[in-house]
Structures are given as C-alpha cells and as structure tokens.
C-alpha cells in the first residue's frame, strides 16, 4: 500500500466535511451487480455514476449503491433511480456514456431520459 501518512492527511482534510456530506440522500441510484449485471458491463456503469456524482458535487442529494439480480437479466446493465414522491425510473442496457447523460439530464436537472428506460425498450 501507498504510505498511510498520505491517508492520514486525507482524513484530516475530510474530518470537517463529513458531517455536511451525510446530506439528504433524496435520490438513490442503484446498480444491479449480480453475475448477469457484471457480465453485461455493470462495473464501468457503477463507476461512472460514483465518479460523476462526486465530480458534479451531487453527493449531498444522490447516493449510489449496488444490489443483486433485479430479475430482468436480458436488460442488464440495469440502473434504478428512486426519488422520494416520484415513481421509480428503470434504465436498461446501460453503459458509462449513458450513465454520464443520466447524471447530467436526470440527476442534475430532473429530466428523465425516456429512451433509455425499460418502457422504451420492450
């Protein structure tokens, strides 16, 4: 491992920020990471969401997490977006590029990208 002293420095810098960070978590992005999802390319999708949400400073309101098999393996990689008071949005056949678009359009500006949802892909 890299020097743990460097990690200590990160800790000291972050200590005060963490409390603020816990945020409201009003939007939950969940990526299916079972065998089916992983084989279809879910890992880069998950990482695109984690990186994008942090780079766009959305981590106060958006949490990104992993789940198992959602049961629609033929549509993997599948991403579900849960938002309080709104209907769940299920994005299918995702990739890192589509993930970046979902961050920009849906998570930042509230516009669901219909063409990537399961409704448009059946």
């Amino acid at each position: 491992m890299k020097s743990l002293a460097e990690l200590q420095a990160i800790k000291d810098k972050m200590k005060d920020k963490v409390v603020l960070r816990e945020g409201t978590g009003e939007i939950r992005v969940v990526v299916g990471m079972a065998t089916c999802g992983i084989a279809a390319g879910a890992r880069p999708v998950l990482n695109a969401f984690v990186e994008g949400v942090n780079k766009e400073n959305l981590s106060d309101k958006v949490t990104v997490s992993q789940t198992g098999c959602i049961g629609i393996c033929q549509y993997e990689p599948v991403v579900e977006v849960f938002e309080a008071g709104k209907e769940k949005v299920t994005y299918v056949k995702m990739n890192a590029e589509k993930a970046a678009q979902v961050i920009e359009s849906h998570l930042k500006n509230g516009n669901v990208i219909e063409k990537y949802t399961i409704g448009a892909n059946q």
Partner: peptide, 14 residues
Amino acid sequence: VLGDDVPLDSYEVI
C-alpha cells in the same frame, strides 16, 4: 487510520 471520523467508502478514500 481513518477511525470513526471518515467512512472507508468516502470518495476521497476510494
């Protein structure tokens, strides 16, 4: 090293 102050899955730590 992180103790209780900073979670392991914080973006900066990852």
